[in-house]
Design a binder for these strands. Structure first.
Length: 291
DNA sequence: GACACGTGGAT
DNA sequence: TATCCAAGTGT
């Protein structure tokens, strides 16, 4: 069963410490898993939980969502962030109905072809929903491998080929074990091997961690620049979309103008929202969430 | 490959 | 208060 130096310890740790997340329940549908993965992109679990429950209560299947307007998805998305994910999920539902008879596809390539589904999400759904053998390489796993294998505190900003090869080399042979391994390493990164203040005392592979064995050297790579948010187009887009979400129907231009003082930036943000399909300019000059 | 893309809790 | 960070993707 120990197919890589860590698997036995990590799998045993997961057995005892895994969070009881609803999308991990045995009866969670592939659609429920896909919805969770899209929502979890760059978004903490605690904020996804209520949104996920509400979403699936309203749209328990791809057919249900595909039958509704895209704007309803954007409205339901509320303040989860990166609202184009709501559009992506709606487009996923449409594509799943059109191309796959309403069932979430099982093939990695078919998953990858869905809007908003990239390398990570396709692997995650194939693995977690369908028990297939795929390398899972999200921010948690990258951090665990950077520390345990490479001996550095943080992985490079953009994933390197070497990281993918490493993750694949550690993959257990049996698909069911590989799937379990993937979620277990992710959970280890989320709960123990955290970005700040890792709980090394609780780590099941502490005695094999290259970073710990090297004396936990401080990160010395290039500064990982954090993005300021106040005053950016992103903030303006958020303000504008919040006005649209709060309104029961189409909104007149002055209502949007009130959301941001600086006209040039406001118009640029609005144009971008329209270009992204998040806002629909009506013939009468009003604006609405997309039909 | 760098950058844009939301939001809010923790430190 | 400012910065960091959270199951990434598309361009």
């Amino acid at each position: 069963m120990s197919e890589n130096p860590y698997s036995t310890a990590v799998l045993a740790w997961y057995e005892d410490n895994a969070r009881d997340l609803p999308w991990r329940a045995p009866d969670a549908s592939p659609w429920a898993v896909l919805v969770s993965e899209i929502m979890l992109q760059q978004t903490p679990v605690v904020r996804v939980l209520p949104a996920w429950h509400a979403w699936l209560a309203r749209w328990p299947t791809p057919d249900a969502l595909a039958a509704d307007a895209a704007g309803e998805a954007v409205r339901m998305w509320n303040r989860l962030g990166y609202p184009r994910r709501a559009l992506n999920l709606h487009a996923c539902a449409k594509a799943i109905v059109a191309r796959h008879g309403g069932a979430v596809p099982t093939a990695h390539a078919d998953l990858l072809a869905l809007p908003g589904v990239g390398t990570y999400t396709a692997a995650a759904v194939a693995s977690f929903a369908f028990g297939q053998r795929h390398a899972i390489l999200d921010t948690n796993v990258r951090r665990v491998l950077a520390r345990a294998e490479t001996g550095i505190e943080y992985p490079p900003k953009t994933p390197a080929k070497a990281e993918t090869r490493l993750a694949e080399s550690l993959l257990p042979e049996r698909p069911d074990v590989a799937a379990r391994w993937g979620v277990a390493v992710m959970e280890l990164g989320a709960l123990v091997c955290t970005a700040r203040s890792p709980k090394c005392a609780d780590c099941p592979i502490l005695d094999r961690c290259a970073w710990v064995l090297a004396g936990r050297p401080a990160y010395d790579g290039p500064p990982r620049r954090g993005q300021t948010y106040a005053g950016t187009d992103r903030q303006v887009r958020g303000r504008l979309l919040a006005v649209l979400r709060a309104a029961p129907g189409p909104v007149a231009k002055p209502a949007l103008d009130a959301a941001w003082d600086e006209a040039v930036q406001r118009e640029r943000a609005l144009d971008a929202l329209v270009a992204d399909g998040l806002v629909d300019p009506l013939d009468d000059g009003q604006y609405a969430l997309p039909g």
